[in-house]
Design a protein around this nucleic acid. Sequence first.
DNA 1: GCCAACGTTGGC
DNA 2: GCCAACGTTGGC
Length: 155
Amino acid sequence: MSAPRTWLLKSEPETYSIADLQKDGTTWWEGVRNYQARNFMMQEMQVGDQIFFYHSNAEPPGLAGLAVVSAPAQPDRTQFDPKSDFFDPKSTKSAPRWFCVQVRFVRDFRNLIPLSTLKQDKRLKDLLLLQRGQRLSVQPVPPKHAQILLQLAGE
DNA sequence: GCCAACGTTGGC
DNA sequence: GCCAACGTTGGC
């Protein structure tokens, strides 16, 4: 078992916010339909990994809180549900295409850390989130960046 | 609402 | 395997 890693998960707060996660306690991170993001969840995330919860398409966008991986990846059940927006007719139960981990609420940042603040911090210029055109919804956060983000959050 | 950047699809 | 068309993401 390797040391816990850190990830960043994006969510549109109108769809699912850190407050929703706080209310639910845990949730399966369903609906990811990007192979790179899926592979991170399937192959690399481990129970206990730290998660920064990012509010995208928000006013303002930014880091909203902390969560933790609470169960390893399993098939995303929305892919089999014809009524779901995330239904994938090409996926089968014997060979599911999409997987998701379970995440548990840890804490809400008292003050959201706006994207604009992250952009101003020179130490974060290599952070994947800040790279031009990137839109991956599940991203690894290297330890040195994780430490800075926690600092900004007042941990 | 705009639009740049990106991933996926499907014809060839 | 190429690549144009299309749909989506997400900041502004």
